[in-house]
Design a protein around this nucleic acid. Structure first.
Lengths: 138, 138
DNA sequence: CCTATTCCCTACAAATCTTATAGGATTTAC
DNA sequence: GTAAATCCTATAAGATTTGTAGGGAATAGG
C-alpha cells in the first residue's frame, strides 16, 4: 500500500498541476485543502523540490510551483522517492536492490522470477502514466 | 514489499511442497532450515492451516503437510492472507476495500483509476501463478 | 492410564517504520 | 528592519511488524 506521504505528494502535485501559470502556492493552502498537517507536508514538498519536480520561492508572496510538465512526472518517480521500492522483493528491485536475507540463491529462487514479472507489470503502468493522466481525470 | 511473514510462508510452503507423499514435517525442521524463529513460524503455519492450505497432526510423529495440490495455491492467496491487500490503495482493493480518507470522490479521483489498473496487472500474475510455478524452478 | 511429543491458542514484549511536531535558520519583499 | 515564507535537522508519538512466553489440548506409544 502507498504511504500517506506518497498520497499527500500526489495530492499536492495535483493541486499544483491544476494551478497553472506558475503562480506560487502556499504550503498552508494545500495543507488545509486536504486536511494535512502543515509541517508534515512541508517535508514532503521539500523532497519533491530536491527531486527536481517543484520550484519554490521564499519570503512574502513565495510558495511552491510545478517546475516540470505534468507529462514528465511519471507516477513511478513519485512513489520511489517517497515510498522506496516498487517491487515486492528487494532482490528484484531495480532502484533499491538488496539481496534477500534468507534466500540462499537468487538464480534458483522460484519467487524471485515471478516477482520480477510482477514488478514489470507494475512498472508498465507506473512508468507510462504521469501526473498528466491524473490531472486529466480530475 | 512483502512482509517477512509472507516470505516465511512461501518458504514453508515450498519446503512442504518438495516433501511429497504427505509425510508430516516438524515446525522445527522448517524453522531451522531457513533460520526462522520456531514460535514465529508456528503462528504462520497455523494461519496457513486455518486457510485450508495445510493439514497437521499432533503428538509424536506429528507435524504439517500440504493439503492441496501446489497448482491450487495461487500466490495471491498467500499474500492476501498474511499481508492483506495487494492493491496500492484501499479504495481499489478487491478483498480489503475501504474508502480513502482524504479522497472526496472516487469517481473523479485520477489516482483511483490508474491504481486499479496497476492492481489488475499485479493480479494477472499473482492469481495465475501458483506454488507449483515456484516449485518447478527450485 | 501415564508420559513425552507436538501442534494450538492467546497475550504480550521488543523492534522498526511511519507519521507528526518543534524550533530555529535562511531568504525575500517591501 | 520586519514580516512572511521556505529550509533544515532533530526528535517525539503512534502504528505496525516481528518475535517471545507459557500453558492448553490432542496423540502415540508403552
Amino acid at each position: 500500500m502507498l504511504s500517506k506521504k506518497t498520497k499527500y505528494a500526489f495530492h499536492a502535485l495535483t493541486y499544483l498541476g491544476k494551478n497553472r501559470e506558475n503562480k506560487t502556492v502556499l504550503i498552508q493552502e494545500i495543507a488545509s485543502t486536504y486536511g494535512i498537517s502543515h509541517k508534515f507536508l512541508e517535508n514532503i514538498l521539500l523532497e519533491l523540490k530536491k527531486a527536481g519536480m517543484l520550484g519554490s520561492k521564499k519570503g512574502k508572496g513565495g510558495g511552491y510551483y510545478l517546475i516540470k510538465q505534468p507529462k514528465d512526472i511519471p507516477l513511478s518517480k513519485v512513489i520511489r522517492l517517497l515510498d522506496g521500492p516498487i517491487a515486492l522483493l528487494p532482490c528484484v528491485s531495480l532502484n533499491y536492490y538488496e539481496p534477500c536475507e534468507e534466500c540462499r540463491c537468487e538464480v534458483s529462487c522460484g519467487l524471485n522470477r515471478v516477482m520480477a514479472q510482477v514488478r514489470d507489470e507494475m512498472l508498465n503502468v507506473l512508468e507510462n502514466k504521469s501526473l498528466a493522466d491524473i490531472l486529466e481525470k480530475e
